[in-house]
């Protein structure tokens, strides 16, 4: 596990590389936004470790304006996060032998992964925000659970439409409950040739557990993701 900074001087990004020497496979992990990113940090670390054990080079990173990366919350936009995910892909390819790259996104990170998916061979999503949730976040106002939401991000969220073209041929979509994802599954099903959908009942990693500010670690979902053959 190697933490480091990468990216241009004006947009320094924090990342943690889980390297698998000799492996040609790699995955970039895009976290959720705001409080959900803090709560799910442990799960994303364990997921990256699990992927590395399964032979995937894994790069976790904080988009600009989040986590340990430069910038602040008012700098966060969907377009910016997608551009950061592409930058992370280039960094992963440069730092390892990985050429078959997948992008993984959780919650809002799922939408970012979809926006950046043209730089990847596969897309993996865990409970991406669905339409109503996206619009709710877009209408949340200036502050949402301890984080400011930039006017540009609010606009992007309010106008957001799931992409129906330019997506990789392979994909995995994981839901903690079947009902929430039906519409997304349907929309992406037409755009991703081989889209596998799994329902793994589990507590959400991005919700607070026991007033600790950190979420639970749903081992069953991590196992399902790490065992995906791609």
């Amino acid at each position: 596990m190697t933490p480091f900074y990468f990216g241009p001087e004006e947009r320094r990004l924090f990342g943690v590389l889980h390297r698998v020497p000799g492996s040609g496979r790699g995955v970039v992990l895009v976290p959720p936004f705001g409080q959900e990113a803090l709560r799910s940090h442990r799960t994303l670390r364990i997921l990256a470790e699990s992927w590395a054990r399964a032979g995937w080079n894994a790069l976790r990173f904080d988009p600009y304006g989040t986590g340990d990366s430069a910038g602040d919350d008012l700098d966060v936009t969907l377009a910016g996060m997608a551009s950061d995910a592409r930058l992370a892909a280039a960094e992963l390819a440069a730092a390892t032998q990985a050429r078959q790259l997948a992008v993984f996104g959780m919650r809002l990170g799922g939408l970012v992964a979809l926006s950046a998916a043209d730089a990847f061979k596969a897309v993996v999503l865990w409970e991406p925000l669905v339409d109503d949730d996206v619009r709710a976040l877009g209408n949340a106002g200036y502050e949402h659970e301890g984080f400011r939401i930039a006017p540009e991000l609010r606009r992007e969220l309010r106008d957001y439409r799931l992409p129906t073209a330019g997506l990789p041929k392979r994909g995995l979509l994981v839901w903690n409950a079947a009902a929430r994802g039906d519409r997304v599954t349907q929309a992406l099903g037409g755009a991703v040739e081989r889209l596998e959908t799994r329902v793994v009942p589990a507590p959400p990693a991005w919700n607070e557990e026991n007033d600790f500010g950190a979420g639970p670690i749903p081992a069953a979902v991590i196992d399902a993701l790490a065992s995906w053959r791609g």
């Binding site: 803090l38 340990d68 500010g213």
Partner: peptide, 9 residues
């Protein structure tokens, strides 16, 4: 058990 960025970063 929050990591180093701290509550609300």
């Amino acid at each position: 058990i929050l990591h180093r960025v701290g509550p609300n970063r």
